[in-house]
Design a binder for these strands. Sequence first.
DNA 1: AGCACGCCGACT
DNA 2: GTCGGCGTGCTC
Length: 700
Amino acid sequence: MSSENGGEGQGQEGPEQLALIREAVRKAKPRARKAVPTAERLPVARVAVDKALSHLDRLYDYSVPSSMDADAVPGARVRVRFGGHVAKADKGRRTGGRLVDGYIVERRESSDYRGPLAPLASVLSPEPVLSPDLLALARSVADRYAGTLADVLQLAVPPRHGRAEAEPSPEPRPAPDPPEPGTWSRYPAGSAFLQALRRGDTPRAVWTALPGPHWPQELARAVVATLASGRGALVVVPDGRAAARVDAALSSLVGEGHHVVLTAESGPRERYRRWLALSRGAVRAVVGTRAAMFAPVRDPGLVALWDDGDSSHSEQHAPQPHARDVLVLRAANERTGFLLGGLTCTAEGAQLVDTRWALPLAAPREALRAAAPLVRTVGDNDQARDAAARAARLPSLAWQITRDALERGPVLVQVPRRGYVPRLACERCREPAHCQVCAGPLEIRDEDGVLHCAWCGRPETAWHCLACGSTRLRAQVVGARRTADELGRAFPKVPVRTSGRDGVIASVPGRPSLVISTPGAEPVAEGGYAAALLLDGWALLNRPDLRAGEEALRRWLGAAALVRPQSEGGTVVVVAEPSLRPVQALVRWDPAGHAVRELAERAQLGFPPVSRMAAVTGKPAAVADLLATTPLPDDTDILGPVPAPPTAQWGDEPLERVLLRVRPGQGAALAAALKSAQAVRIARKEPDPVRVRIDPPDIG
DNA sequence: AGCACGCCGACT
DNA sequence: GTCGGCGTGCTC
């Protein structure tokens, strides 16, 4: 082909000429659609394109070259040219277009697209990684969270690893025998739940677990009961430690080969290998951390979640789905049983019961009394008279109980993480400490201990309480390290160990020792702890968070559940104001009752989960524009805007956040409205992004 | 996001 | 007349 530009511009020089050459090159090789032969049967592939842009969140049709016919199965990964343009003047010719990844969703006889179809660029592998169920789930999750299918698929389908894919998966095992109820018999509805799973039914339960070490084994029995029905099962737990415990319980019940573990601990190859074993139906059950919520279990009969209050169940990547909500969607879409278990109960769990979607699964009082330790409270102003106790900053009661318990076994001391307290308060009157300039909350910087404002960043050098004039702040929580030092001095004959962010201990022997731990990092003690001290309760309860009370109770119960039952002398001391609701719920060991009251209060105040909320964050003008141009559901409350903390994403620009609130049943409509609002903004090429977050976690 | 088309003003 | 500004719309 000769250049149309011929001799023109030959005498010119410099950038113009370069531009002309570039132009000539571009024109000389338009990516002509070669007359590739197309598959004879089902020549059209409907493709989910891996582009997260919300205004092109739909499926696209491509033609299937006959050379790819055999590999281009539904679910296969493909590459396609996307975003090119069909020139009018030169019909059928395509120019440009970038190669993007995608998945074949369906092979069809014809397309309803009026226009020439581009051919698939390549089929990466015939492995059908995107099953119809997984696609449907991803679509539901995207809709629920105002996100795109592509975003969710990125969470749901792991990256391909060729070697792992080439390996054959193991032969599937025959279904195991149904399990004995074991410790499930402590729950009146426990055996019935297992039997329902084993029969092939789909029971749904919110399970308030008894304290003690049995829950991993109980989860495992639910899995085995489901396997015995010939169906698959999925268990999502908050961290690798919990996964390891359920894994061990499963292995001891039915041996290896029936299940895989999906956690961050295994590398990409091994992870993909296990994922494929599930997808291929070679292995029927999985236990894992939150990414496992999408695991491609074949014909699942049960989806289970442990400890839904743990923040690690919130996915960090867009659209930030929560494992509980994904599994609720999954139970509905794939018609499976559902088990939401924990030592505690969230308001969301209580709501599943309240709406009759799930039944409560709890133990009677007697079983609880047999399993739980004695819980005692100490007001947080109690001063120890004993000098040694004062040095260790322990109230007298806590001191005595520790001393006695250390005769009989290990003692757990739970201390909030250093830097955990977002809000400092006056030591005398508890008035929260505010910045004198902007009234933002004061905090102590972790690195250098400097008191400064969390909003404006101004260092505060001469704070005094505006209410009572005191100049003493309630100090930041003392870290585990220093607590360990002090307690070590107070009990010099006892070994002291710490478990926390850097260095989590999984378990400790049953010998007397002091175990200082931050919440969530508590080691399991052989035979149970003789006692536990829950220090600095005020710090957990003072957080400016909707879920502060629920979260404090969750962390206390998590530690207290590791203590021996009261009948064996197990005692828990919580240092916190005894009149507060979470403290009373701990003393009575009544997390379900706490959750019911919490839910009722949130309903009355119009808080989640009864109302659905969304946060819209961005530059003030951008947020205002989105709200002005978006038809929101009727009765949407618009709360704010309020200043939002700056984020790296936006640099130093001042940001605003608006909370949108809709009444029950309107959540889907709100998500849909926000998604189309985003699509409009992107299509209009608005320069300033707006972040939309359904179910924002940090509402104070 | 890219990329092309199209409908108006300054230049050869 | 034609080059080129960017406003608008589409991507199988």
